[in-house]
Amino acid sequence: MKYLLVLAVLWVAIWLWRKNRREEMHDAMRERAAKARQQQRTAPSQPQAMVRCAHCGLHLPATDAIAGPGGAVYCSTAHREAATQQ
């Protein structure tokens, strides 16, 4: 009878230990997945070429710049018009 009680206590202890290990592994996997999602969201995009507005000197991405006469670039149509009127 005494051995049966010891065996039952051992069985419960092993069951609890394995249950906790499984939960820890699931938590670690969730954390890894969350970190991977965070890294994907914050991954930097490709660098863009920067140009300088010929009127005010503002630096802006070349894709947002507005072309003007003589190869000059401007940050807005108002600056392009102001530069051409002078």
Rank of each mutant, 00 (worst) to 15 (best):
residue 3 Y to V: 00
residue 3 Y to P: 00
residue 5 L to F: 11
residue 5 L to D: 14
residue 6 V to C: 02
residue 6 V to P: 03
residue 7 L to A: 06
residue 7 L to K: 07
residue 9 V to N: 09
residue 9 V to C: 09
residue 10 L to I: 00
residue 10 L to M: 05
residue 11 W to E: 04
residue 13 A to P: 10
residue 14 I to V: 11
residue 14 I to A: 12
residue 14 I to S: 12
residue 16 L to T: 09
residue 17 W to I: 03
residue 18 R to L: 07
residue 19 K to G: 14
residue 19 K to I: 03
residue 20 N to H: 12
residue 20 N to K: 13
residue 20 N to L: 08
residue 22 R to V: 04
residue 23 E to G: 03
residue 24 E to V: 00
residue 24 E to Y: 07
residue 25 M to V: 02
residue 26 H to A: 02
residue 27 D to S: 08
residue 27 D to L: 08
residue 28 A to I: 01
residue 28 A to Y: 01
residue 29 M to F: 06
residue 29 M to E: 15
residue 30 R to W: 04
residue 31 E to C: 00
residue 31 E to H: 05
residue 32 R to M: 09
residue 33 A to G: 01
residue 33 A to E: 15
residue 33 A to C: 02
residue 35 K to T: 03
residue 36 A to H: 05
residue 37 R to T: 12
residue 37 R to G: 04
residue 37 R to P: 05
residue 37 R to V: 09
residue 37 R to W: 11
residue 42 T to S: 10
residue 44 P to F: 07
residue 44 P to I: 07
residue 44 P to E: 12
residue 47 P to G: 05
residue 47 P to S: 06
residue 47 P to T: 04
residue 48 Q to I: 02
residue 49 A to I: 06
residue 50 M to P: 04
residue 50 M to Q: 14
residue 51 V to F: 04
residue 53 C to P: 11
residue 53 C to Q: 13
residue 53 C to L: 06
residue 54 A to D: 14
residue 54 A to Q: 13
residue 54 A to R: 08
residue 55 H to R: 07
residue 55 H to G: 10
residue 56 C to P: 13
residue 56 C to H: 11
residue 57 G to D: 14
residue 58 L to G: 00
residue 59 H to C: 01
residue 62 A to V: 05
residue 65 A to T: 09
residue 67 A to W: 06
residue 67 A to D: 10
residue 67 A to T: 07
residue 67 A to I: 00
residue 68 G to Q: 12
residue 68 G to V: 00
residue 68 G to S: 10
residue 69 P to E: 07
residue 69 P to Q: 14
residue 71 G to K: 15
residue 71 G to D: 11
residue 71 G to F: 15
residue 72 A to D: 15
residue 72 A to Q: 15
residue 74 Y to L: 03
residue 74 Y to N: 10
residue 75 C to I: 04
residue 75 C to G: 07
residue 76 S to V: 01
residue 76 S to T: 09
residue 77 T to F: 08
residue 78 A to N: 08
residue 80 R to F: 01
residue 80 R to W: 02
